[in-house]
Design a protein around this nucleic acid. Sequence first.
RNA 1: GACCCUGUCGUCUAGCCUGGUCUAGGACAAGAGCUUUUCAAGCUCUCGACACGGGUUCAAAUCCCGUCAGGGUCACCA
Length: 431
Amino acid sequence: MVRVRFAPSPTGNLHIGGGRTALFNWLFAQSQKGKFILRIEDTDKERSSKEFVDEILFSLKWLGFNWDELYYQSQRFDRYRQHAEGLLKAGLAYIEKSPEGKEAVIFKVTPQKISVSDLIRGQIEFDASLIKDQVLIKSDGTPTYNFACVVDDAEMNITHIIRGDDHISNTPKQLLFYRALGFPLPKFAHLPLIMGMDGGRLSKRTGATAISDYRKMGYLSEALVNYLLLLSWAPGDNRELISIKEAIKLFDIKNVNKTAATFDLKKLDWINNQYLKEADPEKLADELIPLLIGKNYINKDNFDRSYILTLVKLFQARLPRLNDFLEWADFFFLEEPVMDEAAREKYLNQDLSREFRLFSERLEKLANFDVAGVETAFRDLIAELGIESKKLIHPIRVALTGKTIGPGLFEVIYCLGRERSKTRLFKWVKN
RNA sequence: GACCCUGUCGUCUAGCCUGGUCUAGGACAAGAGCUUUUCAAGCUCUCGACACGGGUUCAAAUCCCGUCAGGGUCACCA
C-alpha cells in the first residue's frame, strides 16, 4: 500500500511551492489508491503557530487535498528521544555538552559512498566524508529536522517521499539515519523548484506566494491546481486543461520534469479564465455576494440574487480573475458610473444631446424591454439618423458604464434597466 | 568556495529512454488582422528555441565527454 506524506512546517502560510508538493503527493496517492498523510512539523516552538497550522489546513482543503491521517511532531518528542537513546546505546551517536551543561545527541557520520535512486532523477551519488556529524537531539531536547523526519517517515510507513529539490542534499544524511536505525528505505522523488519571474526564488517581491493570496484574488482552486500541475508535468498530448480526475488517471511520477519552472501569472490568468467560463454561475455568485456586501454594492439583508446571477453570466466569460467582476461591473451597483476620463474625452467630448434624447425616447416607447428590443430600437434609430452604429454605440457605453470595455451594449442596457439607462444618458443632454 | 541538481521559443512544455518520420509540435505572452459594438472574450496569421565546443555514427535535440550558465544545499531552521 502506497503511503505518502506532505510535511509542512507551520512557520508561515502554505505557499505555492508547498501547494505543488502537496498536489504531487496527493495525486500520486490517488493514482496508486494509496494514503495521503499530513504531518505538521512543529518542532520549532518559537517559530510555529496555531494560526499557521489552521491556515495550512484550510488552504489544503481549499485546493481539494484531503488527508487520511494527521500527525503533529510536537506530540511525538518521546519517539525521537527513544530512537536517539537507541543510537547512543549502539555506539552510533555520542553526547556533547554545551558550556551551560546542556546535552545534545550527535550522530557519528562514517565516511562512505552513498547513492540514491531517485524516481525522477535516477541515480544520485554522494560522498559522506563531506558530511559532518549530525545533531539528532538539540540541547533544548527537541529533535532536528532530518532526524524527526526519518523517524516519522519510518514509523508512519511512508513508502514514497515526494518533496522539493531543495531536499536532495538532506537525502544522504537521512539515508545514514535509516541504516543506523535499521529502517527499510522508502523511495525518493525530488520535484523541481518553482521560480519567480525574475529567475530567482519565488518571493513576495516577484508576486504573491501564499495559496490563500490567490484565493483572495479570485482564482478558482481548480484553475490553480491545473496550473501547478502543468508546471512540471504534461499529459503528453498537448492538452493544457486537465481536470484533477483525468490527472489522477494519467499521472505518472516518472513523467515529472527535472527542470525548475518559472511561475507565470499570465498563463495562470488564462487558465483561470477558461475555468471561469465553464464555472457554475450559482457558485460564482456565492463567492461574489460577500464581496459585494463588503463593498456596500448590495445590502446584506435585502438583495436580488437572481439579478446578481444575471450579471455573473454576463461577465464570467471575460474575467481573468473572479474578483475583477467587482471593478468591471461596478456601474451596476453604483448610483453613478465611475468615469474613465480618457474614455469621456474620446467619446463624450461632443454634443450628442439629440441622439441621446432620441434613443431614450425609443427605450421609453419599447413595448418589450429585452435585449432584442433594445437592439431593434438602436438599429432603427441609427438607420433613421443615417449614421454608423459605432458613432453612437461607444458614447452610449461610456455614458452608461464609464468604461470603453465591457459586455455587449444591448445586454448592458437591458440589465441596467430602462430608468437607469435613461437617467445616465440624460446627464449628457444639454437643454 | 565545496558538493548536488538542471539546461528545447520571453514563459510552460512535446520530442530525448528505444538516434533517422524534427526544415523541432502545442499552449501562454507579444505583434498584426478579422469580429457591419468595445475588449481584458472569440477566430485567423506572424514572430520565436534544441546553451556552447568536441566526439561516436551514414545520420544527434536525442548517445558520450568537456566548457559555460542557472538553481539548490552546506545550522543545535525546517
